[in-house]
């Protein structure tokens, strides 16, 4: 690998990589956005709706960070509130009802750390998604396209397949947070980033993701075309699988068991 893990983290935070909406626009046709969680509000950090993938309708849910400063501010920097996770779950349940597969596109530094988020049950919202996604009866594919920040990312990543871009990162905590808690020194983020094993290759090695996607032509049509083909092919396989839900259970059931003793 040519770049240090911490450099990858910084790049993943940058505004030059394609964001969730770029993927929605380029991978799918005829995206219809559906707003709101029917409980409290509409979270601009989570964009969801239905679209066509080739000839098939799919439900698409993306965390959107925005590119410009103005967009980023309007999208809360891609840090979802509880209503974002609840909107996502509402759309997933809708997908289940109508037999559509779900594609989640994830790019977040983490769930919003705000007063309102806590008041409205951020932990409960994430927990409910984890629980409900584990038995959703339609195929789910999650794509980690930039930052995969902890529980805020996982809340859209309980899936049959989790794919990760080669320069994306996925971590239980930010390197700065880890360094400041463990070593009382946020400046040791570089070391923390390496220790946390947060790169795509690490995540693949740990069995957390199933496939690392090449970033050749990232953000250009050949890239989207390639990814579209992979998604269509994989959804065909998943749609034909009668044991989808029990295999999803097994996928998470085995995680972390290799180094256990006793």
């Amino acid at each position: 690998m040519s770049q240090t893990p911490y450099l990858l983290v910084k790049q993943a935070r940058g505004s030059s990589r394609p964001t969730g909406l770029d993927y929605i626009t380029n991978l799918f046709q005829g995206f219809l956005e559906f707003h709101g969680d029917r409980r409290y509000g509409d979270d601009p950090a989570v964009v969801g709706g239905v679209a066509w993938l080739g000839g098939s309708p799919v439900t698409v849910i993306a965390i959107e960070k925005g590119h410009t400063a103005k967009e980023r501010s309007a999208r809360n920097f891609g840090a979802p509130n509880p209503e974002g996770y609840r909107k996502a779950l509402r759309l997933m349940k809708q997908a289940e009802k109508f037999g559509r597969p779900v594609i989640c596109i994830i790019d977040t530094s983490g769930a919003c750390c705000g007063i309102g988020a806590e008041e409205r049950g951020q932990g409960q919202a994430i927990a409910e998604n984890l629980m409900e996604m584990s038995t959703l009866c339609v195929p789910v594919i999650s794509l980690l396209i930039g930052e995969g920040g902890s529980g805020g990312a996982l809340a859209l990543a309980v899936a049959d397949r989790v794919w990760m871009l080669e320069n994306a990162v996925y971590s239980v905590i930010s390197p700065e947070g880890c360094a400041s808690i463990l070593w009382k020194d946020a400046a040791k983020a570089e070391e923390a980033a390496a220790s946390l094993k947060l790169t795509a290759q690490d995540a693949l090695g740990l069995g957390v993701v199933d496939r690392v996607l090449s970033e050749a032509d990232l953000g250009r049509q050949p890239f989207y075309q390639r990814l579209r083909g992979m998604l269509r092919q994989e959804l065909q396989i998943l749609a034909a699988d009668p044991d989808l839900v029990s295999k999803r259970y097994s996928r998470y059931r085995r995680m972390g068991t290799e180094t256990l003793r006793g």
């Binding site: 584990s134 902890s150 309980v158 971590s171 808690i181 740990l206 998470y252």
Partner: peptide, 17 residues
């Protein structure tokens, strides 16, 4: 945090159970 992503995955695993 010392078990990194594998700790994170326990959230999904326990929730499924």
């Amino acid at each position: 945090m010392q078990e990194g992503l594998l700790s994170l995955m326990q959230m999904a695993k326990t929730s499924a159970a």
